[in-house]
Design a protein around this nucleic acid. Sequence first.
RNA 1: GGUCCCAUAGCUCAACAGGAUAGAGCAUCUGCCUUCUAAGCAGACGGUUCGGGGUUCGAGUCCCUGUGGGAUCGCCA
Length: 594
Amino acid sequence: MIHLLDSRLHDAVLDTFEATFGKRPADKQIQIQTTRAEFEGDRTVVVFPLAGMAGGPPHVVAEKLGEALAAAHPWIVAYGVVKGFLNLTLSNKSWSNTLKDALTDTWGFAPKGSKSQVMVEYSSPNTNKPLHLGHLRNNFLGYSVSRILEAAGHDVVKVQIINDRGIHICKSMVAWQKMGNGETPASTGEKGDKLVGRYYVAFDKAFKAEVAEGVARGLDPKDAEAASPIMQEARAMLQRWEDGDAEVVELWKTMNSWVYEGFNATYEDMGVTFDKLYYESDTYLLGKKHVEDGLAKGLFFQKEDGSIWVDLTEDGLDEKLLLRGDGTAVYMTQDIGTAILRFEDFPALDRQVYTVGNEQEYHFKVLFLILKKLGFAQADQNHHLSYGMVELPEGKMKSREGTVVDADDLLLEMRSTARDISDELGKVDEFSEEDKAALARKVGHGALKYFLLKVAPAKSMMFDPKSSIDFFGNTAPFIQFNVVRCKSILRSVMVQDLAWSSDTPMDSAERTLAAGVLSFPSIVQEAAATYDPSLIANHCYDLIKAFSSFYQDHPIAKEEDDNVRQLRLALCAAVSTTVSNGMSLLGIDMPERM
RNA sequence: GGUCCCAUAGCUCAACAGGAUAGAGCAUCUGCCUUCUAAGCAGACGGUUCGGGGUUCGAGUCCCUGUGGGAUCGCCA
């Protein structure tokens, strides 16, 4: 939480301490924080870590340091000591001048490409069922982290691996062949991903029935599963697919194209984009090759049935299957190929970030270990951005039990709720129908994105479909509402160049706003370093909440003193820009009016 | 059973690198719209930060241990 004033203060404390006590502390020993509201001052130096070096009790050292700082620096206008805390009051001029530096449209953003190239993978759905609430968290998180890394100066490549092949899609294909009667999205008017998903469910139902029947005949459940005719058909189809059977490939292409059409509509609605798509069907063979190479080099081993494994027991893990006995690929096979291919495609790539749920932590641990065993140079340049599940009150979402919250449905519901509230408040009645719809989208989708992103990624979260997502309180609409207030004020006065005397006094509310604006760049950097959009969300909320309170009892455009008015307008502009920029990193747009 | 993650107000979440009396929102209650947009503001109520040890000037935060919850250890992805 360092801002421009703090870095100056940091240096001043270092120098003054050395001049006073004859020793120079390490950077880390200088701790500067915001002074708590109940004490006088702006910034606080925590003196405890320095007391030992200075050779005195903390409050005495603080007193001496404060006296020396105030004497040496005219911009430190007052100090006070409470226990080992040295509270400093900074001059109006120092606040004003740093605030002026923050008045740019790109405030908080580092120059593009000033840091390394990073690849962020997210979404990566299977092509056998529609996107649901879990995907929404994944997509919003991945997209937001991409934006944050970009804002921190990285060159970001957004990708996904589309799991377009494998047993799962064969299940939908078999079911459609047997029960589909030639249905298409065009013939039914259904979204393609929904249609294919329906047949995946139909497969599961038929499979369960066959297993139950087998068990009733006295079979062991495991044997019953293996004996299930429809499952055998799916396996046979996978084999035929890998053999390049023309008929199977044709059906596969057709059904996948239906799914992609559906997915693309949902992505567009969500407002997420990708720079490059990887398809498992293109990379699994590459993975197979790497696995076979590894086997040849003696890194992996083969069992009697021909299946290939890696032994990770020395690393505290188990043996892991890399290729089935029948030669068909598993998930891990293609992931090896994809990882290596990506570093080949992007030679400048510094690292890869995989946005994938915490249920796959083991998988990625294994993947990264295997890459290392293969001697892959960038094996250590991979990061699994793991996030917690979205759970319903009754537990995990289960597609087979029909408890899945559909992504399209939820987005629609958010828009519609936003529209209802907007109509009820009646503040934009003169908007065109088009503008009203656009506003409802910004507000409704914003509420959903904020809801999912304000929670730290590692935490699992609860979503209760019965109690809808809030539009009041700590929400995106609240933040949007206050930014709209800022914009409304700034529109009304036609600001050009804001200018005010640097000596213009700033009260504590104004200093709080300035501090929130000034610390934003370091928040962006920290969010990038920790892949954590919730830091941005919380900072935006804290800042705009402070503004909302400030707004209540401080006239801004109506302030009569010219200097004070200009200063407050500048604060208003800076808060608006800072919060808008922050929210844009969450993929949330700010309306002009609402 | 092994490994990893989580546990903070009735509920959902914060708390910067270990810093001062742990903060917001929702819910409940009380005030405030003739004044830059009330999707708002101000206030009240609400806590043994899961239990127990330890490290130190200082622990919600770090270490150990116990409890509770989740994930994972598949020829699923």
